[in-house]
Each structure stands twice: as C-alpha cells, then as structure tokens.
C-alpha cells in the first residue's frame, strides 16, 4: 500500500480543493446568508434612511424624491415631540417595572432552585417568552376590561374602592384599566418581563457561591452581602435585559392601539403615517429615532459590560 490514496471521486477532489484553499469553503458558506442579510435587510435600512430625507407634497400627497431635512424638522413640532417624550417615559417606566418584578424570580431561579424546580423555572420563564405575543396582549384585554376579572375580583373582595381610587389618579388613570396608562403599563411589563429575567438570571448564576461565603465569612450580614456583592454583580444582567425591554416598548404599536387611551406612541405614529396618512417620509423619520436611541443605549451598555451577560 502506498502512502497516498488515489482521489476516486468528485467529492475527494473538492475536499482536496477546500483543504488547499480553506478560504474558499468559508466564502462558499457565508456568501448566501450574507447576500440575503446585506441585500434584504441592510438594503431596506438604507431605503428607510433614504425615505426619511424625502418629503411629501402637502397638496397632492405624493412623495418628492429629493433630499431635504424638512421631514426631520417636522419631528420637532410639539405634537410629534410629545409622542417621542411619551414613548421614552413609558419605555423607562416599563424597564424599571420589569427589573423590580423580575429580580426575585431571577434571583430565586439562579440561587435556590434545584433539580425539578430548576426545570420548572426555566420552562416557566421560557414559555411565556416564546408564546404568542398577540395572544398575551389579547389575554390582558380580557383581564383589564371593565366587565373583566379584575373588576369582578375587586367586587368579590370588597376592594372596588381601591380600584376606583387608582383609576381616578390624574394623568395615569382612566375610565377603566383597559383605557388607562396603568393598564398599558401592566401589559407592557407582562409581555416583556421574560426578556428581563433571562439575562438577569444568567448574570446571577455567574456569581460563585464561594464569593457569597467569603462575604459572609468576612462578617457581612445577609443584607450587606446582597447590597454590596449580589446587586453590583447582577447589574450587567439588568442592563442587558433593559436593552430588550426599552427597545421593545419603544417600537411597539400594537399594545397602545389595543389598551390605553389612544395617546400616540412612536411605533403607532410610524404605522399610521405609512398606512392611513400615506406619509412615508415622516414615518421613516420617526422610525430613525428608535435606531438612534438604541445605538446610544447599546454604546452605554457596552461600556458598562452588559454584553457579557447576553
């Protein structure tokens, strides 16, 4: 037998070619997905950016394909400015709500859940993350309705007074939960909560038990260990989660449409401007805002080390 076996088939020859030129295989592998993402996705983003520099003829409603900053100037009108401000405020509130509500779940799942309970928590967080977004929103429409389960529960426990007091709060109250900012906030927190829990849990799981023991060993009380060791180490996870909750709230247009007092949000503005109003340039300009905000947000998050928790 010789030291070199003969190349018998086309497959053998191709393998030899890939071995001699490893870059060739890499290029063959990566070209189709890169073409797709490059053309379909980046191309579309470029189109969006281009459209945002066009303007619309106010009489004919036709898009004028000429470069102008007029559309961006329109964003600064008070009613548009309000939309942006309201969206950011809601995004921040939802992020905070998710962090507070999610922390105990993430902390328990990461530190105390073992065996079967670990699986329960894992599935318990993952299933709502993936299950139908629209169905979840719909479920809340049922819950928050004036004739729905919350009103019923309040009556059954004789706490309708408290519910009405909450609903009569100025600014965030409303006729019923489903037509108030409180209701909208609740739904937002509900649908994005798993996105906050998972990175938080991941970063908490990376805190070694020995470090907590060391802290206790050095005389820290449980509360001190929590405040000085666990919280700072969980922070990158919270920031990573906040990227999702903030970004998703900012771009959502379904929830403000279904729950709430029909106040406008960025996502809704984009949807309505491109649809019924037919003002695609202004819709595009509106859509650029979340991109810019998220770029700044990601830059800050990266500096704070949040990407290690993803």
């Amino acid at each position: 037998m010789t030291a070199i076996l003969p190349a018998k088939s086309v497959a053998d020859r191709l393998t030899t070619l890939f071995w001699r030129k490893p870059k060739l295989l890499l290029i063959l592998l990566i070209t189709p997905p890169l073409l797709w993402l490059g053309v379909v996705y980046l191309g579309s983003l470029a189109a969006l950016l281009m459209q945002s520099f066009y303007s619309i003829d106010e009489f004919s409603g036709m898009v004028i394909p000429e470069f102008t900053l007029k559309t961006y100037a329109e964003l600064l009108r008070p009613q548009n400015y309000d939309v942006i401000f309201r969206t950011l405020l809601m995004s921040a509130a939802v992020t905070l709500g998710c962090a507070i509500l999610g922390f105990p779940i993430a902390y328990y799942a990461a530190r105390f859940a073992r065996g079967r309970w670990k699986a329960v928590f894992y599935l318990g967080i993952m299933l709502p993350l993936w299950s139908s977004y629209l169905v979840k929103v719909y479920a809340w429409k049922l819950i928050l309705a004036k004739e729905g389960i919350i009103t019923w529960a309040a009556e059954a426990t004789h706490t309708s007074g408290i519910l009405n007091a909450i609903l009569s709060l100025p600014g965030i109250g409303g006729g019923s939960l489903s037509t108030s900012y409180i209701g909208m906030f609740l739904v937002f927190v509900y649908v994005w909560l798993p996105y906050m829990i998972l990175p938080m849990q991941a970063s908490l799981e990376r805190v070694p038990t020995s470090m907590l023991e060391a802290s206790a060993d050095l005389g820290a009380t449980r509360a001190q260990t929590f405040r000085t060791v666990i919280l700072p180490l969980a922070l990158p996870g919270v920031i990573a989660g906040s990227i999702f909750t903030f970004s998703l709230t900012m771009g959502d247009y379904i929830i403000p449409q279904i729950v709430g007092n029909s106040a406008n949000f960025i996502g809704m503005a984009v949807y309505q401007l491109q649809g019924t109003a037919g003002n695609i340039p202004l819709a595009a300009a509106f859509a650029v805002i979340p991109i810019l905000i998220m770029l700044v947000y990601l830059w800050i998050a990266k500096r704070m080390g949040a990407f290690d928790a993803l």
Binding site: S44, L48, D252, Y253, I266, A283, A287, P290
Partner: peptide
C-alpha cells in the same frame, strides 16, 4: 435587536 417596527418600516 432593533424593534420590529423598524424592520417592518424598512422593508
């Protein structure tokens, strides 16, 4: 990573 409304609007 970017909100769906951006992907949608871009397309």
């Amino acid at each position: 990573a970017l909100p769906g409304v951006i992907t949608g609007m871009s397309l």
